[in-house]
Amino acid sequence: MIDVTFLLLLYFMVTTVLAKPEDRLSPTLHTQRDSAVSSASDFQPQIVEVMRIGDAPGYRLGASIFRDKAALTAALRGLPKAPGVFINVHDDVDVAYAVAAVQAARDAGFEQVTYVPAK
């Protein structure tokens, strides 16, 4: 019985350790209350569009288009951090691209990252 008990313990310990490690990103959400307040803001919003550009998904920042996260991160590093950044996600791209854009903004040093669903 002790053998079986130890095997069970070993099984549950190993399966717990083998679970995929998870982390999280915490973008703010642009609430209706914020929308009313932000109209009075002095800052020009910096917006990253996550959308299909041609056949493939990509990122648009102003007039620039990026196909991968590394290039987007590099471009975001050069922007002022105080106004924050809006990640405007269109419906037809995969979640992976939306989350990658949030991660790129965080990696570039933005504290204020706002997730905005495209209309």
């Binding site: 982390d23 999280r24 990103l25 915490s26």
Partner: peptide, 8 residues
């Protein structure tokens, strides 16, 4: 006001 997006 905010939500956490889980990543692997």
């Amino acid at each position: 006001g905010s939500a956490r997006l889980a990543t692997e």
